[in-house]
Structure formats: structure tokens, C-alpha cells
Design a protein around this nucleic acid. Structure first.
Length: 512
RNA sequence: GGUGGGUUCGUAUAACGGCUAGUACUCAAGAUUUUCAUUCUUGCAAUAGGAGUUCGAUUCUCCUACCCACUACCA
């Protein structure tokens, strides 16, 4: 029994999309559950698509999510380097070996020639496939005389090594999620494995070689790789590595919330939700929002992502990372694409916000208060903040909501909502409200909700005033609008002096 | 077009071939509350269509439809 080793192998062509984070997460959960290793490998074999900063972004995203690699770029390990561009010397020999053993050949076709061949087929309504059916008509080491090949190979023209796809053979594969999958090689093409132009392998070769060398036991990746699985099977076979070939699991795709198609950056922009874990600024200066910057807790984000395509088989929805590690199973990963639901993402964050301690939330609130010029100092200030947070956490989805919900506990309103003022600041309400205010001011019991609240209510009831109207009149004075926290709560948190000032302020502003 | 994969309430999903197809989010209504929010209760809402196997099909098989991916010297 081999030690479980899985890898997450993103390409640094841009910011890591939340679907990629989910793939990393599933790999991580699988590895940790089996007591194995999670490896981060960077597949940067496409020199043209390299984007500066993308690799750092990937690492920071995983770190934020708590998906920590045991080995790989950024941490090192026995199979270093883990960046494929730094492993280029390794691949050429493997490509040559395949040629020598008859599983691959050199191809000299120029991009123009390939393009023409494709066009010719397309004009007849077919798709050009470079394989057993067509390779005899192309320029490669199978068709050209040996001397000419020698010459071309020595030249600087960009030739490639292509895999010699067997003719009309059914490849039988096993996917951990989908079961048996069969494909006939006649529909597959002779994939380029290695490029002379930049002396780099393509994904397929690098992937198989590295997975073999790094002793990967399970490959858990996105569904978009399923069509190339037969090629990968055949490569393992050609190398004679069948015995140690990893098992494969192809994850369903993450789909856009409405309509059809996979989740893309555009959807987030259009519908107002992040598609990336962290904020990303492209080299061109284009900004994409991130879950972190939008105020999501990493554990809430991870929890949400874990349930998008996987389910525990029970009705439990809230999982810590440790619980996910012990509960996760590939058997319970679904086969069909999962439409992402931004509302549910918010729900998860709301749940996690409530699970946070008042102390944690208060600490997170401090910087926001500071931004509004509110300082919190001393044990008294902290105690006060704790009380505020305890009161408002049930009403918020994000910590950033705190200010909108409770700003009036820190600063007095400067104006009053016109509609609410017209509704509540009426002659018949003002008198009772001012008397109620006077009652509050003279209240001699402890300034606590459970003490002053019932007393105030009783006072209003005794006088036969309409509770709602009087309370709303007071709320208008205290907050500037007709809805919000309970009056008793507000009084206790702003204190009698401030209470009095606000009552006086509205009287002078709105009259009376 | 070709190849592969997929299809249960709007969404995420549950259901050894066997109860009235369950749960969560959303939405709606009601209760509670001084308002709003919370909370609680209730409700709306699904097996894509058609054959077949079976005593019995959401589940197994086939066909159709639709969706997705792949079809690069990208990953």
C-alpha cells in the first residue's frame, strides 16, 4: 500500500478561480484524510501565457483558505523543483525515450501546414485529426527519409515530438467518480508532447512524467481533463509505468448561477459576487473582487465550496476543516455540474459570523470604526464594543455590515429620514414621546435593557399611549429613521446624556 | 460536426429497485417584537420525454431531447 500523495497543479495564467480552489480543497481533504501528502506543483510549460504575480496569488489564496501544501512550490520537498519550467531538462529525455521505443515520432509540420490541413478537412465538413488516418500524409519522421529527418532535427526550425496514437483501439478507463469510461483511439489525435521551439513539454507529457516521478497516487482534477484521460493512460503504458499509475477522479464543473455554461469572471462582475478567492489586479490594471476583500470568512468560503459538488450524506451543512477532512469522500462527489448560488454563500457567512465570539467580531470591527473616526480605548470602550457586537451580530452577514446597522450607537444622526419623520413626528406623538424621554432621563434603576425596557413600556402603557408610535418617535430622534434596534438597547448603549442631547436636537430641528 | 460526460423543486442536494420523493438556500404567508432584523410555524415547488426489464423504476437498459466539456506546438 503506497502512501497517499495527491497534487494540485495549477497553471500561472491568471488568478486562481474558485473552481480551482475547490479542486485544491478536495485534493487536500483527500490527502489529509488518508494521512498522505498534498503537493503544490506549478505547471508553467506555456511560456506565452505566463502572467506575473499569478503564482504568488495561487499560494496566497491557498494559504488564506487553510489549504497548506506538504510539498511543492514555496515549501520545497524531496522532489524539488516543483515548478515545471525549472524541470525542463527532465522531460526531453522522456520524450526521446518514447520516440526510441516507437511510441512517438518527430513532426516537422509548420503551423501553416497544420492550419491548411485543418481548413481542408473543415471545408468538407470534417475535423482534421492528426493520427493514424492522416499522419502518413504529413511531414514527420514516419514519412520522411532518415537523412532529411536528421537535417531537420539539427536545424532550428521548431519541430515537435508527437505521441503515436494507436489505431482503432478501445481504451478502457476507470474514473473514481464516473466509473468505467471507454474511448476509441480513432477519435483521438497524436498530441504534441514536446516542443523544440521553447524546449518545453506540453501539459500531457509534463503531467505524466511529474506525477510518476512525484509518486502521485490519485489525480483529482476538473472534468475538462476527462477527454485527455485516454492519452494519459496510453502514456503510462508506453512508459511502462502501468503498475504505479495513479487513480483518476474528474470533478464536475462549477457552473454560472443563471443560464448555461461554466462559471466565469464575467458572471461575477455582472451579478455582483466574487469569482476569485482574493482580489486580483491584472497587469493591465483590471480589478477583480475577491471573497476575502468582500468580507467572507475563509472557513465559511471553504465550507461553502466543499458542499458544491460533494455532500456528506447527512443533513449537516456546517463543517470545520477538520470535520471535512474526516467526512470527505470521493464516492459522494456528484457527477453533474453544480450551479453556484451566491445567496447560499452569504448564508454560510452569516452562520459563521454568528459562530464567531463577540471578542473576535469586536476586534474585526475596530478598524472599521477607526475608518469612521471612532476610537475604542480602555477596558470600558472594549466592554461597550462587546455589548454592541453581541446585539448586532444576529443582523449581519459580514462584519462590514456592522457600521450600517449600528452607526448611530457611535454618532448622533444629523438629519432625519423624511418619510419616517413625516410618519412619526406628529403632534399627537411628540408630546407622549417627550414625556417618555423625560421618564428615561429620570429613570433611577440600573441602565440595563432588562431594567429600563420593561419600565419604559409600562410607563407608556399606563398613560394609554400607542406603544408603536411613541417608540418610533423616539427611534426617529435617536437614529434618524424609523427602524432599527430596540429603544431600550439604544439608550443603554449611548447613555442618558447622549440620549438627552439627541432628543433636544430633534426638537430644535423638526420643531417643538 | 465528432468524441466523451451529464440530467430529482428556481439553486445545492437526499432517497439497499419498495412509506405521502426528504433537507437547506431563495421566495410567500402567519406568529412573536415598540419598528426593522432575528427567531418560530406553515406554505410554494422536482424525478427532462419515450420505450423496455420488473410484482414494483428517481434508481437498471435503450432511444430522443437538452446541457456541459474536449476537439492547439493552452492548461
Amino acid at each position: 500500500m503506497r502512501r497517499t500523495r495527491v497534487r494540485f497543479a495549477p497553471s500561472p495564467t491568471g488568478p486562481l478561480h474558485m473552481g480551482g480552489v475547490r479542486t485544491a480543497l478536495y485534493n487536500y481533504l483527500y490527502a489529509k484524510q488518508k494521512g498522505g501528502d498534498f503537493i503544490l506543483r506549478i505547471e508553467d510549460t506555456d511560456s506565452h501565457r505566463f502572467v506575473p504575480g499569478a503564482e504568488e496569488y495561487i499560494m496566497e489564496s491557498l494559504k488564506w483558505c487553510g489549504i497548506i501544501p506538504d510539498e511543492g512550490v514555496g515549501v520545497g520537498g524531496p522532489h524539488a523543483p516543483y515548478r515545471q519550467s525549472e524541470r525542463r531538462d527532465i522531460y526531453r529525455a522522456y520524450a526521446e525515450q518514447l520516440v526510441k521505443d516507437g511510441f512517438a515520432y518527430y513532426a516537422f509540420d509548420t503551423p501553416e501546414e497544420l492550419e491548411n490541413a485543418r481548413k481542408a478537412e473543415e471545408s468538407e465538413g470534417r475535423t482534421f485529426i492528426y493520427n493514424a488516418g492522416t499522419r502518413a500524409a504529413m511531414r514527420n519522421s514516419l514519412t520522411l527519409p532518415a537523412e532529411e529527418c536528421e537535417k531537420l532535427l539539427a536545424g532550428t526550425t521548431g519541430w515537435t515530438v508527437r505521441f503515436k496514437m494507436p489505431e482503432d483501439t478501445v481504451v478502457q478507463m476507470e474514473d473514481l467518480i464516473r466509473g468505467k469510461v471507454e474511448v476509441n483511439t480513432s477519435t483521438l489525435d497524436d498530441k504534441v508532447l514536446w516542443k523544440r521551439a521553447d524546449e518545453l513539454p506540453t501539459y500531457h507529457l509534463a503531467n505524466i512524467v511529474d506525477d510518476h516521478l512525484m509518486e502521485i497516487t490519485e489525480v483529482i482534477r476538473g472534468e475538462e481533463w476527462l477527454p485527455s484521460l485516454p492519452l494519459h493512460y496510453l502514456l503510462y503504458k508506453a512508459f511502462g509505468w502501468e503498475d504505479s499509475m495513479p487513480r483518476f477522479a474528474h470533478l464536475p464543473l462549477l457552473l454560472k448561477p443563471v443560464g448555461n455554461g461554466k462559471l466565469s469572471k464575467r458572471d461575477g462582475d455582472k451579478m455582483g459576487f466574487p469569482v476569485f478567492p482574493l482580489k486580483w489586479v491584472s497587469p493591465e490594471g483590471e480589478v477583480s473582487r475577491g471573497y476575502r476583500e468582500d468580507g467572507y470568512f475563509p472557513d465559511a468560503f471553504v465550507n461553502m465550496l466543499a458542499l458544491l459538488g460533494w455532500n456528506p450524506g447527512t443533513e449537516q451543512e456546517i463543517f470545520s476543516m477538520d470535520q471535512l477532512v474526516s467526512e470527505f469522500s470521493l464516492e459522494k462527489v456528484g457527477k453533474s455540474g453544480a450551479k453556484f448560488n451566491p445567496e447560499k454563500a452569504k448564508w454560510f457567512n452569516r452562520e459563521y459570523l454568528r459562530m464567531r465570539s463577540d471578542k473576535q467580531l469586536a476586534e474585526a470591527f475596530v478598524p472599521i470604526l477607526a475608518k469612521h473616526g471612532i476610537g475604542v480605548s480602555g477596558p470600558e470602550g472594549e466592554q461597550h464594543l462587546l455589548k454592541v457586537v453581541a446585539l448586532i451580530k444576529e443582523r449581519a452577514t459580514f462584519v462590514a455590515d456592522f457600521w450600517d446597522i449600528a452607526w448611530y450607537l457611535f454618532v448622533a444622526p444629523t438629519d432625519y429620514d423624511e418619510k419616517d419623520a413625516a410618519k412619526f413626528w406628529k403632534e399627537e406623538n411628540i408630546g407622549p414621546a417627550l414625556q417618555a424621554a423625560e421618564f428615561v432621563r429620570n429613570f433611577e434603576g440600573p441602565l440595563e435593557k432588562d431594567s429600563i425596557g420593561p419600565a419604559l413600556e409600562e410607563y407608556i402603557r399606563e398613560n394609554g399611549w400607542p406603544m408603536g408610535k411613541v417608540m418610533n418617535c423616539l427611534r426617529l430622534a435617536l437614529t434618524g429613521c424609523g427602524s432599527g434596534l430596540g429603544i431600550a438597547d439604544i439608550v443603554c448603549l449611548i447613555g442618558k446624556d447622549e440620549f438627552t442631547r439627541r432628543i433636544d436636537a430633534i426638537c430644535s430641528k423638526l420643531g417643538k
